[in-house]
Design a protein around this nucleic acid. Structure first.
Lengths: 212, 212
DNA sequence: TATGATACGATACGTATCGTTTCGTAATTC
DNA sequence: GAATTACGAAACGATACGTATCGTATCATA
């Protein structure tokens, strides 16, 4: 499973300050209710009010921990998403890319996690504060993992050391997110295979196909 | 400029029915106010109420024409976006793809049109009715234009006739939209060049790089 | 020229949801 | 035991929504 910086843990490990400590039980009840309501209603129709009701918790208890619906859902989402993302290590780049893309498709296609991912990406475009959290705790860490796949292939000598790692990843996941968000075509397994073949060919040193 | 099915025109050409006809002047004032407010406030903070105020028009006059903020903004957006998209015809695939991608980047990078595009894509994930309009009047028509670029290259014999046109386009624009929406990296001209080179190489018949 | 249908701008309305604040109570530190 | 903070519950002001109604204006038809 993918590991992330312990930003969440750091936030949870509040200073042992005075006064009544925050209830771990409430926290779990809130995250649980969020998970349920994401499944029942989806991101858009989930309200903090109903989460509070479902968790038998005051709204203020939620707002004390999460400033917005987006950050609350983000925390609920992260665990599910990362837990489902396998770390591929098949010994060759093609195998790694295909396993990674297939794993991503399996995680998002027709699942609550996938619908929540879509809802979060939409919300990120509307809320600059959430966008920051999103970049720091999702985009960058996940990309760091994926980047490793490419760099390993460079080390093995499979692809040129001049390979643009970021653009390679943008092509792979860009195509996938594109289909997820525009839903003009399905995320079939054939799609995964053809995309990976495409990228593998594109990674080859510029020989046969360029200028005369 | 890109041409689209005359869905808008058809809708505008209302049956010559009885009663007072809808005021073209009001329609233009609404679209104009929308354009102004998109620039001043952006998609999220634009309200129908303020559009009505700015256009000196009753709210009902807006709702009579557009059921939601999304559809109103969509109409305002379409004109600007399509007017800025050049139709590339350089004589070879690489030139066409590069010109198209560069044109897209010029249209969206740092512009109101780009910010509105992001806002609309976010809204599309939240409103199924808008999603339908989006697919029918944006995604499909634009893709039809782009598809033509690839098909022309097939006709010219530049690339195999077995080329998967959709996946080719998903790679090209997927990467671009990915950077637009995740804003983890910039849409530089180098990005455009490398992406196109990648795809051109990937389009080559499967020779050197695949299985033993 | 009169009639009926529809759109007009203006504005009031009830609803929904937000995020905040205020209760009195409970838990923990100093 | 005093100070401090969190708790659940509930009321709150604010904002924007989408609808309804007002009297007026503009059209097709007869």
């Amino acid at each position: 499973m993918v590991e992330l910086p312990a930003a969440a843990a750091a936030a949870a490990a509040q200073a042992p300050g005075r006064g009544r400590p925050r209830s771990e039980q409430s926290r779990l009840a809130i995250l649980d209710a969020t998970r349920q309501l994401l499944e029942e209603r989806g991101f858009v129709d989930l309200t903090i009010e109903e989460v509070a009701l479902r968790a038998s918790v005051g709204k203020a208890t939620i707002y004390r921990r999460w400033p917005t619906k987006g950050t609350l859902v983000f925390e609920s989402f992260m665990f599910d998403f990362l837990a489902r993302q396998p770390i591929a290590d098949t010994g060759n780049l093609r195998g790694d890319l295909l396993a990674t893309l297939r794993g991503w498709i399996r995680t998002v296609k027709g699942t609550v996690t996938g619908r929540t991912l879509v809802g979060l990406i939409a919300e990120v475009q509307r809320d600059p504060e959430l966008a920051e959290v999103w970049r720091d705790r999702f985009v960058i860490p996940v990309r760091t993992q994926h980047r490793y796949i490419i760099e390993r292939a460079i080390t093995r000598g499979e692809i040129p050391s001049t390979t643009d790692v970021d653009i390679t990843l943008d092509l792979l996941f860009g195509a996938a997110y594109h289909r997820l968000l525009q839903s003009h075509l399905t995320l079939s397994d054939r799609f995964a295979q053809v995309v990976v073949d495409y990228i593998i060919r594109g990674l080859a040193p510029e020989v046969s196909t360029k200028r005369p």
